[in-house]
C-alpha cells in the first residue's frame, strides 16, 4: 500500500529535522520508488526540514552541532533524489558563487547557506574557504553568476569583502553581479559601507535575500 506523496515529504522533512540520516535515505528511496517528483521532495521535504531546523536555531533550541547533523541527513537524502531531478526543473536556475574570504577557514556558516541555496533552486558554485577577492570575481564571470555570496567569521578579514565589490566596479560588471555578505562580525551597516547589495544574519535570511537579489537582477 503506497503512501501519499505529501505524507512522504512530511516524513522526509521530519527525518532531516530529527537528524536521522538513515531515515532520510530510506524515505527518499520510497519517494523514488513511488516515482513521485524528486524536485518537490527536495523542496517540501529536505529543504523544509532544513528550514525548520534553521528556525529552531534562531530560537536557540538547536545549535551548530544539531544543524550540522540535520545537514548530514539532508545531504544523504539529496544523494538519493539527485539522479531523479528532472532537467528542465534544474534549467534556467540562478547561479551563485559562494566562498569564505581569504584569511578565514571557518566555513560552517557558508556550508549551511550553500545547502539552503541549493535546496531552494539555485546553482551554487562553492569556492571553499580562504578565497581571494579576485577568485570570487573570476569564477562569477566564468559561470555567469548573478550573485556572489561572501562569508567571514573573523573581524580580521572583513576588508577582503570590500575588495570584492571594488573589483566588480573596476571591471565594470557591478551592475550585473550582486554581492551579498554574511558572517559573525558582519552587519547591515558594514554591508552598506562597502557597497554590498545585501546582508543576511543567517542561512534562512540568506536564501530570502538571494531570491530578492536574483529576482531584481
Amino acid at each position: 500500500m503506497s503512501k501519499d506523496k505529501e505524507v512522504l515529504y512530511s516524513e522526509l522533512s521530519q527525518a532531516v529535522l530529527e537528524m536521522d540520516e538513515e531515515r532520510s535515505v530510506h524515505i527518499s528511496g520510497e519517494i523514488v520508488a513511488e516515482q513521485y517528483d524528486a524536485y518537490e521532495a527536495v523542496v517540501h521535504g529536505l529543504a523544509d526540514g532544513m528550514d525548520r531546523a534553521g528556525r529552531l536555531f534562531e530560537e536557540e533550541e538547536y545549535f551548530i552541532p544539531e544543524l550540522l547533523m540535520c545537514s548530514d541527513a539532508m545531504y544523504a537524502g539529496l544523494e538519493v533524489l539527485k539522479p531523479h531531478l528532472k532537467r528542465e526543473e534544474s534549467g534556467g536556475r540562478k547561479r551563485v558563487v559562494i566562498g569564505v574570504v581569504e584569511g578565514d577557514t571557518h566555513d560552517i556558516g557558508k556550508n549551511l547557506v550553500k545547502i539552503m541555496l541549493e535546496t531552494s533552486g539555485f546553482d551554487v558554485y562553492d569556492l571553499g574557504r580562504d578565497i581571494s577577492p579576485q577568485k570570487f570575481v573570476d569564477k562569477a564571470k566564468e559561470v555567469g553568476a548573478e550573485i556572489i555570496a561572501v562569508s567571514t567569521l573573523m573581524t580580521t578579514t572583513m576588508d577582503a569583502m570590500a575588495a570584492v565589490v571594488q573589483l566588480l566596479h573596476e571591471e565594470k560588471i557591478k551592475d550585473k553581479i550582486r554581492v551579498m555578505v554574511g558572517g559573525g562580525p558582519i552587519s547591515q551597516s558594514f554591508a552598506d559601507k562597502i557597497g554590498a547589495d545585501g546582508y543576511a544574519a543567517n542561512a534562512a535570511g540568506a536564501v530570502r535575500l538571494a531570491k530578492k537579489l536574483a529576482g531584481g537582477a
Binding site: 537528524m19 551548530i64 552541532p65 544539531e66 550540522l68 547533523m69 548530514d72 571557518h106 560552517i108
Partner: peptide, 11 residues
C-alpha cells in the same frame, strides 16, 4: 577540526 568536534558532541 571544528565541524568534526561539534558532530562528535552528538555522535
Amino acid at each position: 577540526g571544528t565541524e568534526k568536534l561539534v558532530r562528535l558532541t552528538l555522535k
